[in-house]
């Protein structure tokens, strides 16, 4: 399967089976388009057809190049990965550990019911339950050496003292078992202080801080319990935290809504504030909310990703470098095919644990009826539900089988599929469309940056040194 597209005014082709990405000129784009539409066409027919609009010599060259790429296995390669074994059933190696089902903000779009997760009581994780969660993860991790634990909420820093003790316990477990914990934290940043910053920088492999962008955009959706904006509470703390962290291993992560479809301005605002590792995600919420994103917004959003892509290229070239999560796809390497089929591992390799010790497929499933998998307190675990998630890989989803993006999105978010379509195997279409657009932009950016680097190297090679 070949996906032909244009992004950032650049004609491109992705060979789905091999993962090879090609930048094309207009002749190659037209030739490959014709070949896709006329699978049985001979080279002579292709040349005859395209010579009406392009010089025959160029068309001949192009067809030769395309045939060469096909012969080398970089175009039109088989993409039948259906027989890949899915690995060890029953192994869990990653956990979203809910340190708090409470929050010091009241974000309007919060999927977690402003921290309470639709539970009766706001509550904090006890040290004892946290330790039992790590014990459970070790016990379920089979022969895996690398384990991940993300402290999540609500707002996890409301329970900082417990996090410290749980991490210390994890370090002891590492010595006893030979396994390694990769601890991370997702926070709104309100509670950051010197002690917490130093601890997070010492112990956390990655920290995600939620900031939506421009002050008015952020404050509209992320108020405090008394209704005031939280931008001023967070921004300087986040800057200091990132400075102490040497701009490494963090993300400033925002959410955009129907209210700010010009979200490129929010990404650029955060870049202007000195943050270099940025991500902004579309809100996922009930369609009747005034800030929900709908199908009608897609053309505007596509334009905005293109606009962000152009500015991204410009800034990275002129010394104002920053990284945008969705434009940073490792096209030359990337995960192995098995990881691409299984994605985040939801409900299988990856689970969430609540302050009550309950186990859910991931943080977004917490509190949903019928989705509790067990408890770290009594050791119960629904192996049948785990198996259902294990077999819910991208190739098992009817909608994904013929999608060119299936080895990049891995079938999308199961929680969104469940929420919007009532079935973890039926992906949420709006999410699919946005992901495809972002991938196209990422591939074009990769090609354009590579071209610019090549041009710079070539220029350096042929330019004489300046006269002294």
């Amino acid at each position: 399967m070949i996906h032909l597209f244009r992004a950032l005014d650049t004609p491109m082709a992705l060979d789905v089976g091999s993962g090879a990405v090609h930048a094309l000129d207009e002749i190659a784009f037209d030739a490959l388009t014709y070949m896709q539409e006329h699978k049985d066409a001979t080279d002579e027919q292709i040349v005859t057809e395209l010579s009406a609009t392009h010089p025959m010599t160029d068309v001949n060259e192009t067809v030769g190049e395309l045939r060469s790429l096909i012969a080398q296995g970089y175009l039109d390669t088989p993409d039948d990965y259906g027989s890949v074994p899915l690995g060890d059933a029953g192994v869990v190696k990653a956990m979203c550990l809910h340190a708090a089902h409470d929050c010091n903000l009241r974000c309007q779009y919060c999927f977690a019911d402003m921290g309470a997760y639709h539970m009766r009581n706001r509550m904090l994780l006890s040290v004892d339950t946290g330790k039992k969660a790590l014990d459970w993860l070790i016990a379920k991790s089979g022969n895996r050496q690398n384990l991940e634990v993300d402290f999540f909420g609500g707002e996890p820093l409301l329970n900082f003292s417990a996090i410290k003790e749980i991490v210390a316990y994890g370090r002891e477990l590492e010595k006893m078992t030979g396994k390694r914990f990769r601890f991370t934290t997702t926070t709104n940043g309100v509670g950051l202080n010197d002690e917490i910053m130093d601890f997070l920088n010492r112990e956390m492999n990655n920290v995600v801080i939620s900031i939506d962008g421009r002050p008015d955009v952020h404050d509209r959706m992320r108020p405090t319990p008394n209704g005031k904006g939280s931008y001023d509470l967070v921004i300087d703390k986040a800057k200091e935290f990132v400075r102490r962290r040497n701009q490494q291993k963090y993300y400033i992560r925002g959410t955009y809504t129907h209210y700010n479809l010009d979200f490129a301005n929010d990404v650029l605002h955060l870049a202007d504030e000195g943050f270099q590792q940025l991500s902004i995600e579309p809100v996922v919420t009930a369609p009747d909310k005034p800030y929900a994103i709908g199908e009608a917004d897609l053309p505007r959003i596509y334009e905005e990703y293109e606009r962000l892509g152009r500015e991204y290229l410009k800034r990275r070239a002129d010394g104002r470098w920053f990284s945008f999560f969705h434009f940073t796809v490792d096209l030359s390497g990337g995960p192995c095919i098995k990881r691409r089929l299984t994605g985040c591992g939801v409900g299988n390799e990856y689970v969430a644990v609540t302050p009550e010790g309950d186990i859910y497929p991931c943080h977004q499933f917490v509190g949903r009826e019928g989705m509790k998998m067990g408890s770290v307190l009594d050791g119960s675990f629904d192996a049948q539900m785990q198996k259902r998630f294990q077999h819910n890989h991208v190739l098992a989803k009817e909608k994904c089988r013929d999608c060119w993006a299936r080895f990049y999105c891995s079938g999308g978010c199961a929680a969104n599929a469940h929420a919007f379509n009532g079935d973890i195997a039926k992906p949420f279409d709006l999410e699919c469309q946005l992901e495809r657009k972002r991938l196209e932009c990422a591939m074009a950016i990769f090609a354009l940056e590579q071209e610019n680097n090549l041009a710079a190297v070539e220029k350096e090679a042929v330019e004489p040194p300046p006269c002294l």
């Binding site: 930048a23 094309l24 060259e61 192994v91």
Partner: peptide, 30 residues
Amino acid sequence: MKHIRTVAELRSLYGGCGECQASCKTCPAA
């Protein structure tokens, strides 16, 4: 090549050690 530039070049069927990160872009098996 004059008309096509291959910028990135899956059939890792080397892979599958299961040690990489799980949770909601990023690599023993040898």
